[in-house]
Structures are given as structure tokens and as C-alpha cells.
Simulated scan of single mutants.
Amino acid sequence: MTLSHPPLALAPFELAGFDLAAFVAATLAEDLNGAPGAGGRDLTSESVIPADAVFTGVMDSRDAVVVAGLPIAAAFFRALDPDVEIELLVADGDSVKAGSDLLRLRGNARALLTAERSALNTVQHLTGIATMTRDYVRRIEGTGTILLDTRKTIPGLRVLEKYATRQGGAQNHRMGLWDAAMIKDNHVAVAGSVEEAVRRAVAAGVERIIVEVDRVDQVEPAIAAGATHLLLDNMEPAVLRGAVTLVGGRVPTEASGGVRLDTIRAIAETGVTYVSVGRLTQSAPAADVGLDFAAA
């Protein structure tokens, strides 16, 4: 890829609720059977690569993608070689063509080859999520509907995966069970009714009360009891349109359940405020990103 700008500055990477240093350390320890310098080993690099050998490489994408995770990849390399030279050639959130170079690096060969897999795994996974997310966002352009992610994330990776959906153009739904109530069918079954479940949330002082409804006749009781957001679950577009009309803008509406790339446009055109898609984080394929030796 021919650059139209100089390499980008590598700024500190910070996400609320995410400890980058701890993530890098734990991931490397998993791969090395212990912390580097404290029993963890890369047998291949130790036995094949001279201790003072230098590696110059380029990370590139073999497919057209939306990039996510490059600063985290850089943190893996820097953890094992603090003096590594890294040039970011694109930024997270950028759409790039197949064959595009993403970053260049030069440093201790043993260290960089030891960090390679952890860095690539992270970029491949997050870039895959960002790329799928951008496909869904493009499919609903012009409708006014906003794409949301869900809590269907890999345990331990939620903050990163939701970061990747933002790079693709989605907004985050709840980060967890703590930042909003979401009353679903099992909560309703235990509470006895939609109204009673919502009433209890209101009485507890909860400000954001999302209520899942799968029938139009649940809409009015949920709103009357104090719901601040309705999740319209597994409704066909015609039913969704009727539910949106009934709500009449009193609270935001969200379509959810079984949304696919080939169906999301029709769902968005019903006038819902949001569409949430679990597959963004649950089943996005990894992007084809590699790291190859390059002549200095």
C-alpha cells in the first residue's frame, strides 16, 4: 500500500474497565507457560534464532477489512522488546483494501517472533468484529436506525469486543448487568407479569429499564408500568411496524432476535430506534491478517 500520509503516532491505548498491561501479560504467559523471564519459554525462537538477531516485518491484511486492535498488537511487541521500532500505517476504524500494510516494526527477532501470535490473534479477532459490524452499518444507512451490539461476548474479552464494534460504527448496548435493567422472559415468569417486573424495577430506583416484549399486547403494560426502552423480540417487520406505531415515540424501540445481514434493512425500515445483533461479537470470522519478514 502506498501511504498518502506519514506513519501515525502510537498514542497510549486506554479503555475504561480494561487493563492493557495485565491483558498482555496474561496472554503471553498462557502462550509461554509462564511469564517471560520467570520460566516462560518460546522453545522455537530460543533454539533457532540468535539472541542478537534483528527482525524487520510488516503486518498486512490479505482481505478488505475495517481495522481494530493495532495499538494492542504494538503493546505485545513492546512488552518483550521495549526498544522495538513500530510505525502504524493505518488507524483503528480505517477501512483498508486487500493487501494493505497495517504496521511496520523492527526489533529483537526472538522477542518479536515470540509476541507474533498473541498480537495477530488479537488483531484478527477484533478486526473481524469491526469488519462485520461495518457491513451491518452500511446495510442500514439512510434509515436513521442505530446498530447495537449485545452481551454475547467471549468471557474476559467484552471490553475489547465492544471496542471493536465501535470501530465498525455500532453503538454499545449495556456493558454488563450493572448499567441498566433488562427485563426478559424469565424475569417476567418469576415476577408474574411484565407489569409487576417493571413495577419492582421502578420501586428499586432503577433509571434505565429495558423490557423485552415478544407480543404487541405487552407494549402498553410495559410502558404504563415505567419501561424506558422496549426490546421488540423476534417480530416480523409487519409486526414491528405496528409495535413502533403503537409506541409512538414515547420510548426508544429496539428490534432483536435472529437479525441477519439480508434481513436487517427491512427491520430498520420499520422505524425502530435500534437494531441489536448478537452475531457481531458471537460469531464474526477472524480477519486474514499476517506478519511477514521484510528486508531492511
Rank of each mutant, 00 (worst) to 15 (best):
T56I: 13
V48M: 02
F23Y: 15
S45W: 01
D81Y: 14
L80A: 07
I86M: 08
A25I: 06
L89V: 00
A35N: 11
A74C: 15
A51C: 10
V48N: 01
V54C: 07
A79F: 11
P71N: 00
G37N: 06
S61V: 06
D83G: 09
A25Q: 09
V66E: 07
T44G: 14
V65R: 03
V66M: 08
G37H: 06
A75Y: 05
I86T: 09
A68Q: 04
R62I: 13
G40C: 12
D52C: 01
V24H: 03
V84L: 02
L70K: 04
S45Q: 08
A64Q: 11
P36G: 02
A25W: 03
S47H: 09
V54P: 01
V54K: 02
A38M: 14
A64G: 12
T27F: 00
A51V: 13
A74W: 09
D31R: 06
A29H: 03
A21S: 14
A74K: 09
S45Y: 05
V58A: 07
E46R: 01
V67M: 06
D63V: 02
V67D: 02
P50V: 11
G57Y: 13
V54D: 05
L20C: 12
G69L: 04
V48A: 02
A29W: 02
A73C: 10
F23V: 08
T44R: 13
E46T: 00
D81A: 15
D83M: 07
P50K: 12
S61I: 08
A91Y: 00
A68G: 09
P36Y: 02
V48C: 06
F77P: 02
D60T: 11
V58Q: 03
S47I: 04
V58E: 07
A53P: 05
D60F: 13
G37W: 08
L32A: 11
A25G: 06
F77L: 03
A51N: 10
R62W: 11
